[in-house]
Design a protein around this nucleic acid. Structure first.
Length: 665
DNA sequence: AAGGAGGGTTTTTTT
DNA sequence: AACCCTCCTT
């Protein structure tokens, strides 16, 4: 069990400072999580009511771990617990109480990335903007940036920064009206609407201000404008705010995170006490040396000098290969050799890369050499077509306004409702300002749609209403009712129709079983199960059976992941591959360098995060030639190599398997 | 409806 | 190179 006496002086200082604004500058591998949990326990030990502590983390996985650790500190499971969650989950709970004040339905649904893109596609189509001018994904990103800065749809045209923004601003308006009329919100709305709620309804804000005496924020370097506003409002009365973070690890600027929040914290909250955690327990001296000399090249940062507590000689290598296939092959051969000689477990290895196209070649080689591996952060279970279809059913049932989900499933499985009929109904619904299903009778009377279609649509409406009632009447039987729904719509038949191969059919059916299990888990653990509650869990990925990533990390195998998703993790042996200009730093950031030089700083921090994941050994690699869009191109070594080694290092000689032994890896 | 040919496009990172 | 969309044929 963690204990005050086991902490170093700086950690103890952070843990025992219990009131007023506190900034804990925690470098990589300096025991940040430990400080946060021990501090929560310490607050409670000093008589603070656990329920008056709010601690905000970056992921639900982190929240869960932190709660467990904090409770373990206090011994046993007390009745009153601190509120530990992500910003998003916090906002959902606030909004489920009071969102009606803002004209949204209480059972709003949350749109995830896929839904956002469909909505954006519809918005652009309504504006008659071709995908050449703006892709849905670009609109979603731009809208997200605006929202994270608190810019509303109506004001976006005043915040135009470049040519494309004119279309984006119009798209934003359309997109937002699609969401609102669907009774839906997106991720950014959760924060934005909570802020609006607090702003327009001071009584609601006051309720939460009174609720918490102490607030802690983890990963503060990655907070965006909305998140800052939220926190600032909550702690205004007492300013008992402790933020923990590392400005050198701010890598989510593209998502609206604003590094200036951590840089300016002491100015924004006068009287701030600053504690620096600089003793690194993770990396060897050599690895930390590289990280330090790299990040020194960033100008806007809090000065920190990390020092290693482990004096073990670590191994840092740099290697070049002719092309990306050789890069992958050699890395995998080396891992395979070491595994065979029982020097290591496969779990000890991580291969980190910048973009999601890079792991493919590695996968080929890992399969070839029969090395177990896990590819993390790829499409999750919930991106599956079947799962998305069926969740669309659940959504339409939970939220009748959700037209977008309705359109997804109205003819899946096929029930003779053709595209023409759907379009006519939609047009009529818009023209007469009525709901989709209410537009059917007049069209049928006018013979605009065939009576066959009309009957099919009406039957479907009845089916939905019927199931809505059944889910509401027996929330505990959610899984069973869902099963009945599957039978009623005959989804099995749809699978058999779509997939001819028997093993494919089995796999798809397995997926559906998994979905049913998720529902069962949810019902078993929820105090008051409801369809909206289930959907919240799914979308915010704090599913009860833990997130996909967490689940996967328990398995054995070499870890393959982007540097972004490796944040917060550590591995004994790390390969940081593709150290090339255009990849790390990524070409998009290099292109943007002229306008905003900070774009490279974030890439540098990303490289820093990658390097500091390694505990014992770090291998940096580069391919001299790399294929892009089917064309072979010569590459340039990443500028970060020069910065880390002072000058471009001569590649470590091609290490043959026999020589690895001498390396004493 | 389903499947194939042809043509155009794509790649940053994700709570 | 791989993917997706559209249009065409069955």
């Amino acid at each position: 069990m963690d204990d005050l006496s086991k902490l170093n002086a700086a950690q103890r200082d952070a843990v025992t400072t219990l009131s007023g604004p506190l900034l804990v500058l925690a470098g990589a591998g300096t025991g940040k999580t430990r400080v946060i949990t021990v501090r929560i326990a310490n607050l409670i030990r000093h008589g603070v009511d656990p329920e008056r502590i709010l601690s905000v983390t970056f992921t639900n996985k982190a929240a869960k771990e932190m709660l467990e650790r904090a409770l373990a500190q206090l011994g046993g499971k007390p009745k009153r617990k601190p509120w530990i969650s992500t910003f998003h989950s916090f906002c959902v709970r606030v909004l489920r109480q009071d969102i009606e004040e803002l004209g949204y339905p209480k059972n709003f649904t949350i749109y995830d990335r896929g839904d956002q893109e469909s909505a954006a596609r519809r918005a652009l189509r309504d504006l008659r903007v071709g995908e050449k001018q703006m892709r849905p994904a670009d609109l979603v990103n731009r809208v997200s940036q605006w929202k994270s800065q608190g810019v509303l749809a109506t004001d976006a045209s005043d915040h135009v920064e470049h040519d494309g923004d004119v279309v984006a601003a119009m798209g934003y308006k359309k997109y937002q009206s699609i969401l609102k009329s669907s009774g839906s919100v997106d991720f950014d709305d959760l924060l934005l609407l909570t802020n609006r709620l607090f702003h327009e309804h001071p009584d609601v804000l006051e309720k939460y201000q009174r609720r918490f005496d102490h607030v802690q924020i983890d990963e503060y370097q990655d907070t965006n404008g909305s998140q800052f506003d939220l926190i600032e409002a909550l702690v205004r009365g007492h300013r008992n705010l402790c933020v923990v973070g590392d400005d050198d690890q701010s890598i989510y600027g593209w998502r609206g995170a604003d590094i200036s929040h951590i840089l300016k914290f002491p100015q924004v909250f006068p009287g701030t006490k600053v504690v620096r955690l600089q003793e690194n327990y993770r990396c060897t001296e050599q690895i930390l040396g590289l990280a330090n000399s790299l990040v020194r090249h960033n100008r806007n940062r809090h000065e920190k000098k990390l020092f290693a507590s482990r004096s073990v000689a670590g191994s840092v290598r740099y290697r070049e290969y002719e092309n990306e296939e050789l890069e992958a092959e050699t890395v995998v051969r080396e891992i395979e050799f070491n595994l065979r000689h029982e020097r290591a477990k496969s779990d000890d290895y991580a291969i980190l890369f910048r973009t999601n196209e890079q792991p493919r070649v590695f996968e080929v080689q890992l399969r070839r050499f029969k090395v177990p591996y896990l590819l993390l952060g790829q499409r999750s279970f919930f991106d599956n077509k079947e799962v998305r279809d069926l969740l669309a059913y659940v959504r339409v049932i939970a939220q009748p306004l959700d037209e977008q989900s309705l359109l997804r499933i109205i003819n899946t499985p096929a029930r003779s409702i053709g595209d023409t009929a759907v379009e006519k109904i939609l047009a009529r619904a818009v023209a007469r300002k009525v709901r989709f299903f209410d537009a059917v009778p007049s069209l049928r009377d006018e013979k605009e749609i065939t009576s066959k279609s009309a009957t099919a649509v009406e039957a479907f409406a009845t089916l939905l209403t019927d199931f809505r009632r059944r889910f509401e009447e027996a929330p505990k039987r959610m899984a069973e009712t869902f099963h009945e729904l599957l039978e009623t719509i005959n989804y099995d038949l749809e699978i058999q129709r779509q997939y001819k191969e028997p093993d494919q059919q089995l796999a798809r059916q397995g997926t559906i079983e998994q979905l049913i299990d998720t529902i069962k888990d949810y019902v078993a653990n929820a105090d008051e199960p409801s369809l909206s509650g289930f959907l919240d869990n799914v979308t915010l990925s704090d599913r009860d059976s833990e997130s996909d990533k967490d689940e996967q990390l328990k398995q054995r195998g070499v870890r393959l992941m982007t540097i972004h998703s490796a944040k917060g993790l550590e591995f004994p042996r790390v390969y940081l591959v593709g150290m090339e200009e255009g990849l790390l730093p990524h070409r998009r950031s290099v292109d943007a360098e002229g306008e905003s030089p900070e774009s490279i700083d974030e890439e540098r921090r990303l490289c820093y995060v990658g390097v500091t994941r390694a505990k014992d050994s770090l291998t940096l690699t580069r391919a001299q030639f790399r294929k892009k869009w089917g064309k072979l191109r010569e590459t340039i070594p990443s500028r970060f190599l020069h910065e880390m080694f002072d000058e471009l290092p001569a590649p470590t000689d091609e290490v043959l398997q026999e020589e690895i032994t001498e390396d004493g890896l």
